[in-house]
């Protein structure tokens, strides 16, 4: 269980990263915290020709708050964001969700942007991005662009990032109202069977669900009465196209979406 051979670049500037990506394209992989990628290399699920280590780039290791938007650079580790004193005030949803990301020992290395890049359907950071309606900042050698959360996740481990693009940062808008998060996994730290995030919106509530569909998905609802909410949740539960695996059944997932979804919606609307 050793990785296949690859070249390794320790980038000293973002331009070096972009140059490497534009030259090698799909054969290159950005190495940030490595908590997903390295396991895939060890299992030889991934066999890039080149790894570009971005973790020595200070300019990517920044958390900035501006006009109600928090921008987190590609080098920011999950533990660093969790320890950021402004987190609970600016992004309470992430303060709730981050402790569910892996374990202390993986959050210490893993990055926020790396988790987005990996796009595991059960991961908490993509769910938070969808729930809050954030943006992913992409950059290649020629240009920068921003992609909205709803357009970034294309499928299981598939994103809108082009092969020559680096995820430079991600930005999350601070929500105006309340938020809630809950996750069910087989054990603490496991991939979510169902993870739900609810955020109050000006007109009502947004509920986002991870772990069920191929990508985290969200629905916006106005304030609904009990039976209308149950109908909306039931519809959403079926739209997620849940499936069976060794850890849970599709029915179980739909049930959790209905029950936890209702609890969270009520919680943020109270």
């Amino acid at each position: 269980m050793k990785p296949a051979a690859f070249d390794y670049v320790r980038a000293e500037s973002v331009n070096e990263v972009l140059e490497g990506l534009s030259k090698e394209g799909g054969n290159a992989r950005v190495l940030a915290g490595g908590q997903s990628l390295m396991a895939m290399l060890n299992m030889r699920l991934a066999k890039p020709r080149l790894l570009i280590d971005i973790m020595r780039l200070k300019e990517l290791n920044r958390i900035e708050e501006q006009a109600g938007v928090v921008t987190i650079g590609a080098g920011v580790r999950q533990a660093a964001l969790l320890a950021w004193p402004e987190l609970a005030r600016t992004l309470p949803l992430l303060a709730l969700a981050l402790p569910w990301v892996g374990h202390v020992q993986t959050r210490s290395r893993g990055t926020i942007c790396g988790s987005l890049a990996h796009a595991d359907p059960s991961a908490e950071m993509p769910l938070a991005l969808i729930a809050l309606g954030g943006e992913v900042h992409l950059r290649n050698a020629r240009r920068r662009r921003r992609v909205a959360a709803s357009e970034f996740f294309l499928g299981m481990m598939a994103t809108a990032r082009a092969e020559d693009e680096l995820i430079e940062a991600v930005s999350f808008p601070s929500p105006g109202g309340g938020c809630a998060f809950r996750e069910v996994a087989r054990r603490h730290g496991d991939f979510a069977i169902v993870a739900c995030a609810a955020v109050a919106t000006p007109k009502g509530v947004r509920l986002a669900v991870g772990g069920v569909a191929d990508v985290p998905m969200a629905r916006d609802w106005p304030r609904l009465d009990r039976s209308a909410l149950d109908d909306a949740l039931n519809g959403f539960a079926y739209e997620l196209n849940a499936r069976d695996d060794v850890h849970a059944t599709a029915r179980y997932r739909r049930d959790l979406v209905r029950i936890i979804g209702r609890d969270l919606v009520r919680e943020v609307l109270q």
Binding site: D230, D231, N234, G235, E239, T249
Partner: peptide, 20 residues
């Protein structure tokens, strides 16, 4: 497994909305 226990004791599931 929780899902297995749930299947044993839960009643019928709510039907999907029409058209789904």
């Amino acid at each position: 497994v929780p899902a297995k226990l749930a299947d044993l004791v839960r009643g019928p599931e709510p039907e999907p909305p029409t058209g789904q």
